[in-house]
């Protein structure tokens, strides 16, 4: 996953990278010039005449003019910086009328991602992954009902806070397909370090296909083990917090697991998503993400194997 501020993959990040270049290089020159002036001041050859301390040097008049010139130079440079910053900032605020609408809700310590639709049956709710079509602006509404989080996808745009009691918004117009790393950038508690939002930018057709797949109900269990696993899931502690559409599990306290197997990570970046890690996670979530709100479900080894068999099939 790319995640560098100076490797922009969207219009917004591109605009910001321009500001970086516009400020960094002149700053570098100014810094080196300052060091050079300091070095010259310290090591220049001075006339041998020994002045008593305190007598002012004779030619400070020129220095007064130089100070004035320096002040004007700084002011001009800073004005240029401010102007560049302002212009690029306004590019970040641009909005298109046919932008894709996404809603991201910050939780402790995972991301709920929803794709609203005027037709309720076509709405999508998922967790810990964000897909966007390339070349089309996405307006991401940001909200939180617990603490302040901040969504930051360095390759696509600057960050925006998710503040309880407020709705904030971020626009992203991706220009290159690929996988990008998003993360939480405002300290939000014990597992702030493990709150990754993997972002996938794909062609519009692939995006539409993904959205359709998300709308579908959960895949039925494909093996006797998976059937037993579904039983355990619905009747045990899992259903108290997690939802799998098309089953009896309908709680929204924790992440929606309907399409768990198609996600890049487990626990919002705590672990990679594969069989071995899923087993380890279910056996003891606190060992991998200490302080997470998911308790140890206390499943027997047989139950664990069955539940994992079921969850693996939820593509």
């Amino acid at each position: 996953m790319t995640h560098h501020v100076l490797a922009p993959a969207a219009d917004q990040a591109e605009a910001i990278a321009t500001v970086w270049q516009g400020l960094f290089w002149p700053n570098l020159v100014i810094y080196l010039a300052m060091l050079a002036a300091l070095a010259w001041a310290l090591w220049r050859r001075r006339p041998a005449a020994d002045e008593a301390p305190g007598l002012r040097a004779k030619h400070t008049h020129h220095w007064g003019l130089a100070l004035l010139g320096w002040t004007v130079f700084i002011a001009a440079t800073l004005t240029a910086y401010t102007a560049l910053s302002f212009v690029q900032d306004r590019r970040l605020l641009a909005r298109e009328p046919d932008a894709l609408r996404v809603r991201v809700t910050g939780e402790q310590w995972w991301w709920q991602v929803e794709y609203p639709d005027s037709d309720p049956s076509r709405q999508v709710t998922t967790a810990n992954e964000l897909h966007l079509p390339v070349g089309r602006m996405a307006r991401i509404e940001l909200q939180s009902d617990n603490v302040i989080h901040s969504l930051w996808i360095p390759a696509l745009n600057g960050k925006q806070d998710l503040i309880p009691g407020r709705r904030t918004e971020m626009a992203v117009t991706p220009r290159a397909t690929g996988h990008y790393r998003g993360e939480c950038a405002e300290f939000c508690g014990l597992q702030h370090a493990h709150m990754v939002l993997p972002v996938t930018v794909e062609s519009p057709a692939a995006f539409a296909a993904w959205l359709d797949a998300q709308r579908a109900q959960a895949a039925p269990p494909a093996s006797p083990s998976a059937t037993r696993g579904k039983q355990v899931f619905e009747s045990g502690p899992c259903a108290l917090c997690h939802a799998i559409s098309g089953t009896d599990a309908g709680s929204h306290a924790g992440p929606d697991l309907t399409h768990l197997a198609s996600r890049p990570t487990l626990g919002a970046g705590a672990l990679p998503n594969d069989r071995a890690h899923l087993l380890a996670w279910l056996a003891d979530p606190q060992a991998h993400k200490p302080g997470t709100n998911m308790p140890d479900p206390k499943l027997s080894p047989a139950q664990l194997t069955d539940v994992v068999a079921y969850l693996e099939g939820l593509r």
Partner: peptide, 9 residues
Amino acid sequence: SVPLDTQVH
């Protein structure tokens, strides 16, 4: 600078 700050804040 606001835009740059939103990246590195």
